[in-house]
Design a protein around this nucleic acid. Structure first.
Length: 337
DNA sequence: AATTCGTGGAG
DNA sequence: TCTCCAAGAAT
């Protein structure tokens, strides 16, 4: 990884935020773009919210982007552009939790703290044959104790990098390299044939299905977008005006009758121009079924403040959820009709 | 403490 | 198509 030898706290922090719940291959291009666009934390602190969201577009878990900017502004304004160098102070930054604080403290400042991430859970649970559920506060405390003991006085930066690399390259979730593993003789999981039963997670993921009807309102060659502000998915991202319903099998003529139909879009002034196929977007806890309805405005309409009538710069300015971009790409629509 | 927050790759 | 889950954090 390009940042592996780097000790710059900004680079370490940025890469660790990007890699939260994210594969290296997926996060790498984002890291490159961020350091290129914002070489220092001060540069990032001066950025516009929408610009940072746009750079984060497609990476998911967008609270990371919002907290990234909040934290950058705290470092720039409250710490004179210098990252705090202790675990506790790092933990106080928005978006920096126990794992990330330990990673920055050890990699950037040589503090003697051990990281606990998905790799560490897996390596320790297997090696010790430990079936304590890793989700939940009790499991977290337990495995933190184990990794603290395992690290001992070994220099933290080297130990943390090594145990995570070991989990990522040898003791992998599937197809672990047990035959080549230097710990195989003492690995309890291997010697009791439980490698793929560990680690244990107590809870399973439950997904609910939601039905989104997007109104692609074309007004004299432009399109209307609105920002998501509710405490819900995709907060701060932009999307077409949305009507959420209980099913996808609805046409504009039926949507008009719903209470959720926007009052600024009078049915008398529009012409429905057909609906898209159903787009499915799977999130961690939801399945979104989205239908796009093209609607032509016959006469100019007035719309509320929270809507933006986008010109040809739209796609370079506004961060959109993947499902919106997939629709635009498939339709070869650039928003600048 | 339990839920919720995206997206994509692998099997 | 379906499940798992990836250098977790906030609420």
């Amino acid at each position: 990884m390009p940042w592996k030898a780097v000790r710059d706290p900004y680079a370490v922090w940025l890469s660790e935020i990007i890699l939260q719940q994210t594969r290296v291959a997926q996060g790498m291009p984002y890291y490159e773009r961020f350091v290129e666009t914002y070489p220092t934390v001060t540069d990032l602190a001066r950025a516009e919210d929408d610009a940072v969201m746009k750079l984060w577009e497609g990476l998911g878990y967008y609270s990371r982007a919002r907290n990234l900017l909040r934290a950058a502004r705290m470092v720039a304004n409250d710490h004179a552009g210098h990252f705090p160098d202790t675990y506790e102070e790092l933990l106080s930054l928005p978006g920096v939790g126990p794992y990330t604080a330990a990673a920055i403290a050890s990699f950037a400042f040589d503090r003697q703290v051990a990281v606990l991430d998905g790799n560490v859970y897996r390596v320790l649970a297997r090696y010790a044959g430990d079936a304590t559920p890793t989700d939940g506060s009790r499991g977290r405390k337990h495995f933190q104790d184990l990794v603290d003991a395992a690290m001992g006085d070994t220099p933290a930066a080297a130990f943390n990098q090594a145990i995570m690399d070991f989990g990522a390259l040898v003791c992998t979730p599937r197809n672990a390299a047990c035959a080549a593993c230097p710990l195989s003789a003492k690995c309890v999981a291997l010697n009791t044939d439980r490698v793929y039963d560990l680690p244990v997670k107590a809870k399973a993921v439950a997904r609910r299905t939601r039905h989104f009807h997007y109104l692609v309102v074309e007004d004299r060659g432009h399109v209307l977008l609105q920002q998501r502000t509710e405490k819900d998915i995709w907060q701060n991202l932009y999307e077409f005006p949305l009507i959420e319903a209980d099913r996808t099998a609805l046409r504009v003529e039926q949507l008009i009758a719903l209470p959720a139909w926007p009052d600024w879009l009078p049915p008398s002034r529009i012409t429905p121009e057909g609906r898209s196929t159903i787009y499915r977007q799977i999130l961690s806890h939801q399945t979104i079924l989205a239908v796009f309805h093209r609607i032509k405005c016959e006469a100019p309409i007035e719309f509320p403040e929270h809507l933006v009538r986008v010109d040809r710069q739209a796609r370079s300015l506004y961060a959109l959820p993947r499902v919106i971009n997939r629709y635009l790409e498939e339709k070869a629509l650039t928003l600048d009709l």
